[in-house]
Simulated scan of single mutants.
Amino acid sequence: MRIVFMGTPGFAVPSLKLLLEQQYNVVAVVTQPDRPKGRKKTLTPPPVKEAALSFNLLVLQPERMRHADAVAAIAELQPDLIVTAAYGQILPKALLDIPRLGCINVHGSLLPRYRGGAPIQRSIMNGESSTGVTIMYMAEGLDTGDMISAVELPITDEDNSGTMFDKLSLAGAELLGQTLPSIVSGQAVAVPQQDDLATYAPNLTREDERIDWYKSARAIFNQVRGLSPMAGAFTYLNGEVFKVWACAESKGHASNKSLIPGTVLATDNEGIYVQTGEGVLLLKEIQPAGKRAMSAAEWLKGARLEAGALLGDGGAA
């Protein structure tokens, strides 16, 4: 059986390795093109490409999978099955129709909830207590195909997007290994999704990263950990971007609702206490403009931040 694997970020690597460990015949790996990364904009291959090359696999990197030449290149490989995991582009019908066993996707949510490109981040940002992985047959719509199998995992307050990516990528690979035999034998039972229960997880924008201090401490806590350690949430301090990488709800510090949300209440060796629309948020790991990420306590040793200082758009002028 000939398999083409399609994936891009680290989330997809365990699934690729699972296929190889179980001695499936992966004839090619399709991933996104190398992209500039970091301050020096160094052209960097995606994690799936690095993994594929380490196993001496053929790697294809079309700019647009919808282009006829890209579809033709896959067709020439004569795959029996296409396996995708966080590839990053919607596949055209011409491609979905190529393999005799269809195309399956390892998706990082419990479908039909959180269809789209950022299901893990948005599950955390929305305060969900659990999420999971669904293996589904791919269809023309956005994550609308019939579901074959799923596994659920809890989201704890100690989790952020980084920890959940790791947990779900491993769970997805394990689920893929359990599910493939039924797909290969033609005995897989696929269940249609209930479209009326669908929710969406669109790719993140800059606005999703901006902290609105008028929201509750709990909501901002969820936002920050949902964006960490990838993009990070940000606010402003003295007109400059001030990133927040880790925080916590502060139960022991008195809230003062007479103050503008975003007002610094106090600082100590735990970090920076900020008034929100409801409750107090303790900033624990931050990144001032032009500096590296560090603990708030470390930054406070050399910075002057007094009670009454204002974070947010109100301090951006």
Rank of each mutant, 00 (worst) to 15 (best):
I155P: 07
L77A: 10
L300Q: 13
D196C: 15
G102Q: 04
A139C: 01
A70G: 02
Y114D: 02
R122W: 00
R122Y: 00
R64W: 06
A297C: 11
G271D: 06
T267E: 08
M138H: 00
P45D: 00
V4A: 06
D196K: 15
W213K: 09
T131Q: 02
L101T: 10
S15E: 03
S169N: 06
P14E: 10
A293F: 13
I220D: 07
S54L: 05
L170E: 05
A296K: 14
L19P: 02
V59F: 09
R113V: 03
F55V: 01
A217K: 15
R64K: 14
S149M: 06
G145Q: 05
K257Y: 13
I148S: 04
A190P: 05
V48D: 04
V244R: 03
E270N: 14
W213G: 01
L305N: 12
L20D: 05
V224N: 08
G252S: 15
L43T: 10
G177M: 06
A217C: 13
L237Y: 13
L19T: 01
V244G: 00
H107T: 01
A293D: 08
K167Y: 12
L305H: 12
W299K: 13
T44I: 01
A94N: 09
D208W: 14
A217H: 15
T84P: 06
G290N: 00
D166K: 15
F234N: 00
F5M: 02
Q187G: 09
S161H: 11
L18D: 07
D34H: 05
R35M: 02
T144K: 09
K93F: 11
A233C: 02
G116H: 12
R35H: 04
V59I: 03
E152S: 10
A118P: 08
N203G: 15
A231P: 05
Q187W: 12
G177D: 08
T163A: 08
V184Q: 07
V83Q: 08
G177I: 03
N222M: 01
L259K: 11
Q121L: 00
L101I: 11
V189Y: 07
M6N: 05
S295G: 08
L111A: 08
F55C: 02
P33E: 01
I155S: 04
M230A: 15
S15P: 04
T263I: 02
V83Y: 09
R115A: 03
G141R: 08
G10Y: 07
S250C: 13
A307K: 15
A219N: 06
S228W: 07
Y87I: 15
L281H: 07
L43A: 09
G232L: 07
A150V: 11
A70R: 06
P79L: 08
Y236V: 10
I155K: 07
I90D: 06
A51T: 02
Y236K: 08
L58V: 03
S109P: 05
P36V: 01
V83E: 05
G312V: 06
K17M: 12
T134G: 08
M136D: 04
Q193D: 00
Y24W: 09
L53M: 07
E21P: 11
K40V: 08
V13G: 05
Q32K: 02
N269T: 02
K243L: 04
D69S: 11
N126A: 01
V26I: 05
